[in-house]
């Protein structure tokens, strides 16, 4: 199995606080790595370090497809093949849905018509096609999450990272999104998935890591994690 994404000793400090603490993780193509942990455990910060928004501290490294991308600008890392969504949707508010989807592929050689066709197909898949000419700010919160997912998939990146895709989403839409994520993994992408919804995490993940205070406290298959005392303690408190 080829390792699509890997971190080694990834660390991020904010002043005295160590938000991410020597995290080693790896995910292969076609694999879904669930990331769980209480609020403030460092999950989002981990993603921000991976995609280049934050520069890691203490010599931690990020590898994409075996190549080191540490310290590269986010747009360079994105072109290496990482797509992502955000915990709080960050759509391009005053652009149409189609234009939102075009943003990640602006540097592609393909003619505009072809890219627009792909964007429409993607919107079709996300059931947003009827709103394609609306501005993104006119979407509901759940629809914005779908739009983000579509935007993430648009350049067909080998690695995707989803930050709490199910937060604030109705169960019906939730089910729809779970199916899309499954498809994505089956298409051979490495998926990093953050969620507080353990049912979905257990259903989707091939492996899970549990973070607490920036550190990995447990790692393994779904069954290992489900019964892991450290995880139960971190989650339920003592």
């Amino acid at each position: 199995m080829t390792v699509a994404i890997e971190t080694r000793g990834l660390t991020k400090r904010f002043g005295g606080l160590v938000a991410v603490d020597k995290v080693d993780l790896r995910a292969a193509a076609g694999e879904t790595l669930g990331i769980i942990g209480v609020n403030g455990a460092g999950k989002t910060t981990l993603m921000n370090c991976i995609c280049g928004l934050y520069r890691p501290d203490d010599g931690g490294d990020v590898f994409v497809g075996g190549e080191r991308v540490t310290g590269q600008a986010p747009h360079v890392v994105a072109h290496r093949g990482i797509g992502r969504t955000f915990q709080v949707p960050r759509v391009f508010r005053r652009m149409s849905l189609i234009d939102n989807l075009l943003v990640p592929v602006l540097d592609r050689k393909a003619p505009d018509a072809e890219l627009i066709g792909r964007a429409e197909a993607m919107l079709e898949r996300m059931q947003l096609i009827d709103l394609r000419h609306n501005h993104a700010e006119e979407l509901s919160g759940g629809q914005q999450k779908l739009l983000e997912m579509a935007r993430m998939l648009m350049p067909d990146p080998p690695i995707v990272m989803l930050d709490e895709p199910f937060a604030g989403v109705h169960p019906v839409l939730c089910k729809f999104m779970i199916e899309r994520i499954e498809e994505t993994a089956h298409a051979g992408k490495a998926v990093l998935l953050i969620s507080h919804d353990l049912t979905s995490i257990y259903r989707l993940s091939t492996r899970v890591i549990a973070l607490n205070q920036g550190r990995i406290i447990a790692e393994g298959g779904v069954d290992d994690i489900r019964g892991n005392p450290a995880v139960i303690e971190a989650y339920l408190g003592t």
Binding site: L53, H75, A78, V103, P104, L106, D107
Partner: peptide, 8 residues
């Protein structure tokens, strides 16, 4: 920031 992470 989002634009940058989308490759712009």
């Amino acid at each position: 920031d989002a634009a940058e992470m989308m490759g712009v």
